[in-house]
Structures are given as structure tokens and as C-alpha cells.
Simulated scan of single mutants.
Amino acid sequence: MKITGIGVEVVSKPKAHAVRDALQLLDRDGHTKVVIETDEGITGVSDTYFGRVASSPAVLAAIITDQLAPAIVGDDPTLIRQVRQKLWRLTDYQGSTGLSLFGISAIDLALWDLLGKSLEVPVWKLLGAQRTSIPTYAMVGWLELDVPGLEAVSTKAMEQGFRGVKMKVGGGPLSEDISRIKAVRAVIGPDAPLMVDANQAFSYSEALRRGRAYSDLGCEWFEEPLPAADTESHIRLADKLDIPIATGENRYGQAQFRDLITGGGVGVVQPDLRRAGGLTDCLEIGLMAAGFGIPYASHGGGAHIHVLAALPNTIYVESGLLPPDGRVELVDGCYPLPLEPGLSSWSH
């Protein structure tokens, strides 16, 4: 089987309901869809999401169409790691991180989808899964919501069967965070996991101060307290706090996880499919973390559920609220794995 072509489609439009974290407004619904075609008529598909910057999907499409795709037409699509190596070498001069890696990731995911379809099995079966469902929590506590809004959406998440919820912090003073955390805790109960996410908003000293407060409030983890690239400060902070530091969604490729993990700067590893390098690199990052006894929780859901099914250190898949059409139901707070060939997924 050979790759005969790669098609790219772009969508970029305003989001119906914009959401806010401590650093940014996510007000776009952007997608770059990749379709890999083969001489045997089997196709593989991936969909890269952008929550802001109207031009990003089109810029990514140009990188894929003009640079990455021509380099792999004629290649064997089942040699996924060989394709990865070729594309990393190709983009080295301009930098293989940033949008270059978004493109590599999009192709990687489409190749895994194609492989699953060619063998007529879901990808989690190819990865050697050790579970058939994934524990999940709902990321619902955005900063544009007032306290009654937070209470309402957190209540709905628990009614839908999620194990717990995650909420944003850092949009105001610590006293505001504390009030919002207490309000959510009151509606989800004393035992449900409650995670907090600062989206890289704090300095080291402020992260230390707030992390101690979040720990005293019984939060499950403290996500992205610091700028993602500051490995040394993550290591210092983790040494001072009892609450686990969760991070990784803004790190690019395996190399950016190595020193963070070996230095003890992360308590929950959270790669992002787009930035880490696709399914291949997320799987390998997860296995690296497992070797150090560090749990893995995805950033986002979607195709990530296949990786989570295979890793020995999986603890959660991240999700929004369930779709209103009822096509997805949680069982004991877990997503069931999809049965369709390829990367089809219930998670969103």
C-alpha cells in the first residue's frame, strides 16, 4: 500500500459560546481536516482543532499541503514512525515544533486511522489495550462563568455521571479563586475529584502561594501553574508543594518532557495530541512517564482515548459535558472505548 495523495480542508468561524481562562479568550471554532489517500482505496482522517486565531487553520493547511504532503506521497502509510522521522528531518531547518509539529501530528493521527481501517480494528486494539473504558472528568469551570453559572454546570456534570470536574483559576485574586472552589465543592460533594487549572498564569512565588491554598482546599491537582517552558521552576515548585503539579499540554515533542519528568517537576503528565507529535509521541511520552511511576491524564479527549486505553499509568480522559443527543453514556464514570475501525471516538 502506498500514499497517493493528501487532502486538506479548513474551517474557521466564531464560536457560539466563547470561553475564558486566565490568559486568553477562546472564541473561535477552527479545524484543519487531513485526509490521506492510498492506492488501495483506504483513507485515513484527522481533525486538528484551533480555539483562537482565525488564520491558524489555513496556515497549518499550507504547511501540510506545500511542505509535508509532497514528501510522503509514495511512502508506505503503515511505516508510521518512519514517516515521523522523515518529517522531523524535513522541518528541522525552520523548527520542527510549533505549527510544523501540528502538521506532523495531523499526519501521524491520519496514518493511525488509516492503519486501523486497513486492518478493520479500532486503534486501541493495535496498541495493546489493557482496559475497555477510561475514567473521565468534566472540564466545565471556565472563568467567564459567575458563581451560579459554575454551580449549575458542575451540578450538570455530576448528574451526567462524571467522576469529578476541573475549573479555571487565576482570573482574579486568590480570595476569588477560593470562593469559586468552595462553591463548586459544595455542589459536587466532598469526595469527587476537583482539579484547578491556571493556564501558565503565575510567577513562581504566586504559584507557590496559591498552590498551598489549593492544597488546603483538597484539590486533586494544580495544572499549568507556570509558563510551560520553565522546567527548573516546575521542579522547584513540585518540591515545595504537596498537591501534584499537572502539566504538558504546551510542550512540544518527547524531548521537552524528558528533563521535566527526570527532574521531578511533574506529578501528572498531560500531553496534547497536536503539540506532542500525535498519537505516536503521546504513547511514547506516556510510557516514559510510566517508567518513573508518573500518572498520565490526557489534555482533551477525541483520539487520545486510544492512547489512554493502552497506557499502564492512565488515570483520566478530559471531556466537556456530554452531547445533548444522548449518543454517549458514561458507565461508572468512564467512557467506553469505540468499536469502529480506526480512530473513531466517543470522547470530545
Rank of each mutant, 00 (worst) to 15 (best):
D75L: 11
D177P: 11
M288S: 06
S298F: 09
I107N: 07
S55V: 13
T262K: 09
L321R: 02
A192N: 08
E151L: 00
D281R: 00
T38P: 08
G51C: 05
F102P: 01
L145S: 10
R274T: 13
S347Q: 09
R52S: 13
S133V: 05
I80C: 09
S100Q: 11
L79S: 09
R275W: 13
G267F: 10
A22F: 12
P57T: 06
Q270M: 14
L237R: 00
D239S: 13
L126V: 09
Q130F: 00
A157T: 01
T43C: 11
D259Y: 00
G333N: 10
F50R: 06
A129L: 07
Q94C: 09
E224G: 08
A58I: 02
A192W: 02
M1G: 09
D242Q: 12
H304Y: 13
V331P: 03
M167R: 02
P341S: 07
R131D: 10
D27M: 07
P338V: 05
T91P: 02
Y214C: 06
L79D: 14
G265N: 00
I294Y: 06
V307D: 04
V153G: 00
D76S: 12
L343A: 07
G278P: 12
A229Q: 11
I261S: 03
T48E: 12
G211K: 03
L126M: 14
P193M: 04
H17V: 15
L90F: 14
A69S: 15
A297P: 07
S55I: 13
R131C: 10
R210N: 13
D242V: 09
V34I: 15
P312F: 13
Q256Y: 01
G301R: 00
Q270S: 08
L226A: 02
K15W: 08
H31R: 15
S105G: 07
Q82P: 00
D27F: 07
V331K: 14
T97Q: 14
L337G: 02
R251Y: 08
G277Q: 07
V169K: 02
A303Y: 09
V331M: 06
V11Y: 09
G141A: 04
R236M: 02
R185S: 07
K125V: 04
H306K: 06
G74P: 07
P173H: 14
D230G: 06
I188T: 05
G326C: 04
P190I: 03
V123Q: 02
A69Q: 11
V45R: 12
V269E: 01
K86N: 08
T314M: 09
I181Y: 04
G248T: 02
G320L: 00
G342T: 07
H304C: 12
T4F: 08
T280P: 02
A228M: 01
R185H: 10
P57I: 10
A229D: 13
K117Q: 12
R210H: 13
G300L: 06
G44K: 03
A309T: 11
M195W: 05
I305D: 03
P225Y: 13
A110T: 09
V19S: 05
G5V: 03
G333Y: 07
P173Q: 11
T280E: 08
F257H: 05
S203F: 10
T314H: 08
V165P: 00
V83S: 10
M1V: 06
T78Y: 11
G51H: 12
A157D: 00
L260I: 01
